[in-house]
């Protein structure tokens, strides 16, 4: 916990320093349960002391970037993890936001704990306190204490992260003495598992998963890259792209709209899956498209601010595309 206090102090002092240059800072503050932190939008100097940064800061605050850039006059400071900064980079690369408007306050990351995993382990008991150490997570609930091994509770994306200590783009970088130490996993392992099934099995897998969807649109609205939420074609009557009947087939088509609109743009923050009230593994759908884009065009979103999204450009001769001959 000492470490945490240390990084909090650094964060608060850095933000206080640059507060004159920005009119609003988006950061994390204490949440309503010990398991969660809450995003906060700070526009008064006195509130800066509420800012925190710890292993529970799982939200991707870049979600607010596009909306705020349209609303806020003056510059915006944003507390970001290195992986979150990819979203800002990609938004800038697409010209959706202006780089100069944002002060990226990037904090070195030592891995983020997924509260859903903890909840799954301990059940939804009343949590009195939570202490996340390097090796162990000590949870105190009304039923007693429990010790969990930290290394199993990181967010999925942390297991293949390679930029935790190296922000690709930042204005202020706050180094974290803690480093991310996890056993690396294959990013596409779960996708490969699914692909080993037959085509019918894959079909029924998604039919079952997406049959649960309640169409709350949390996945769409939390996504930092999906900037046209209010004008989404899902809600159109003419043409009627999508029925509002919440059947598995329609829900799947809704996800397909998301996948296609995020092709080559998804920065893999995993927020869509985190926020799903029905625990649908939507992230797999996004990751697969990214894999396809990577294989075909050698592109990953959110790395280079000057690079164009592959589907917005072309080559007259495509090395990796083998066209099918039907004659």
């Amino acid at each position: 916990m000492n470490q945490n206090r240390n990084i909090n102090e650094k964060l608060i002092s850095k933000v206080s320093e640059i507060f004159g240059q920005v009119s609003l800072v988006v950061g994390y503050c204490r949440g309503n349960s010990p398991l969660k932190v809450s995003p906060c939008l700070i526009d008064e100097k006195k509130d800066i002391s509420n800012l925190i940064f710890n292993k529970l800061c799982i939200n991707n605050l870049a979600t607010y970037a596009y909306k705020l850039s349209k609303k806020v006059e003056g510059n915006i400071g944003m507390v970001l993890k290195p992986c979150d900064s990819k979203a800002i980079i990609q938004l800038c690369a697409e010209g959706l936001i202006e780089r100069e408007k944002f002060r990226m306050i990037t904090v070195g990351c030592s891995g983020i704990i997924d509260y859903k995993k903890i909840l799954k382990e301990i059940g939804r008991q009343r949590i009195i306190s939570l202490d996340i150490g390097k090796d162990n997570i000590e949870v105190e609930t009304i039923d007693g204490k429990k010790s969990l091994s930290t290394k199993n509770f990181y967010a999925e994306k942390c297991y293949w992260c390679d930029i935790s200590d190296n922000p690709l783009e930042s204005d202020v970088f706050i180094e974290n003495d803690d480093k991310l130490e996890v056993e690396k996993k294959d990013k596409y392992a779960d996708i490969k598992d699914l692909e080993n099934l037959s085509i019918e099995e894959i079909y029924s897998y998604w039919q079952e998963e997406l049959g649960r969807c309640i169409r709350c649109y949390a996945c769409r609205n939390v996504c930092p890259m999906e900037v046209c939420q209010d004008q989404c074609i899902v809600h159109l009557d003419y043409p009627n792209w999508e029925s509002q009947m919440a059947t598995a087939e329609e829900n799947k088509f809704f996800q397909m709209i998301r996948v296609m609109h995020l092709a080559g743009r998804c920065v893999e923050c995993g927020e869509c899956e985190r926020v799903c009230p029905q625990n649908i593994s939507i992230f797999k759908l996004m990751k697969k498209m990214n894999q396809v884009i990577d294989e075909l065009f050698g592109f990953s979103a959110g790395i280079d601010i000057s690079q164009k999204t592959p589907l917005l450009t072309y080559k007259t001769i495509e090395e990796n595309i083998e066209e099918e001959k039907l004659t």
Partner: peptide
Amino acid sequence: EKLTEKCISCGACTFV
């Protein structure tokens, strides 16, 4: 305004 500006306008709360 201050209380609500962080809402992302999804329907999770209404649907549950």
